[in-house]
């Protein structure tokens, strides 16, 4: 589904990703872990197409296409979804209107008829239950005045509405208490259907107790220094990141 080969990326002239290789197959959950500043969020943003990232080398092939040549909106239509670490507040734009525009843009791209207000609301009510989000948040401006937990729920709710093929969760656990974390993780787990894939970027092992990964990769100084199964995450939890950094010869 997704093949990343020797990806090198710079931000403001500084090389952040120094040769990433990663292969994600349908239905798999990959956890990308690493200390602060290792390049985890950069990887997430580059996959979603955020402007301002300079690709120095390598390639990303998504379902047979060069992902890096696609606009962010096109990536969304083709099934990529990024749950932001810091969901953006958008004053003056109604949450419901925003999401309806997003869902219908994707449907249009897929050649499906657009949802009318009634059908959209029905779908939204069904999905909003997945993340135990208050329905009145739909009527508010996008993320404006939402608590940290509400913002993260809103991200997962959007993901449920847009039904991506590849969900990228960027530090979705940060700033969440344990109950909110469980709710958000449950929401993600209900979207795991054997075909949909996830890249879960996280600093802490904690989230992986609830979203159990098939593969764990450790990122340090812009490189994947170690890959393994779930036990690698537990090892990191016990020993911290110091040893991987040393192992990376940084």
């Amino acid at each position: 589904m997704l093949t990343i080969k020797d990806l090198r990326v710079a931000v403001n002239g500084k090389e952040i990703l120094k040769g990433i290789d990663l292969e994600v197959n349908p239905g798999e959950v990959h956890a990308v872990m690493g200390p602060n500043g290792s390049g985890k969020s950069t990887l997430a943003y580059v996959l979603a197409g955020r402007p301002g990232y300079e690709v120095l080398g390598g390639e990303v092939i998504y379902e047979g296409r060069n992902l890096l040549e696609m606009d962010p909106e096109e990536r969304a239509w083709e099934g990529i979804f990024l749950a932001f670490q810091y969901p953006v507040e958008v004053p003056g734009v109604n949450n419901m209107y925003f999401l309806k525009a997003a869902v219908n843009a994707k449907r249009k791209h897929q050649g499906l008829p657009e949802l009318d207000a009634m059908d959209f609301l029905k779908l939204a009510r069904e999905k909003i239950r997945l993340v135990h989000m208050r329905e009145d948040l739909l009527k508010r401006n996008v993320n404006e005045g939402f608590s940290g937990g509400e913002k993260k729920r809103n991200e997962i709710f959007q993901m449920a509405m847009l039904e991506p093929k590849l969900g990228i969760l960027d530090e979705t656990d940060s700033g969440l208490d344990i109950d909110a974390l469980k709710t958000v993780a449950e929401g993600v787990n209900t979207l795991r259907d054997g075909r949909r894939s996830f890249i879960v970027v996280t600093h802490y092992q904690r989230l992986l107790d609830y979203i159990v990964p098939d593969h764990v990769h450790v990122l340090a100084h812009g490189r994947i220094v170690k890959s393994g199964d779930r036990s690698l995450a537990l090892e990191l939890e016990e020993q911290g990141y110091a040893w991987v950094e040393e192992a990376a010869g940084a």
Partner: peptide, 15 residues
């Protein structure tokens, strides 16, 4: 705002 613009586009809303 570039961030807001990217946020909307990342949801599939054309630029």
């Amino acid at each position: 705002d570039e961030q807001q613009l990217f946020y909307l586009r990342s949801r599939g809303i054309p630029e």
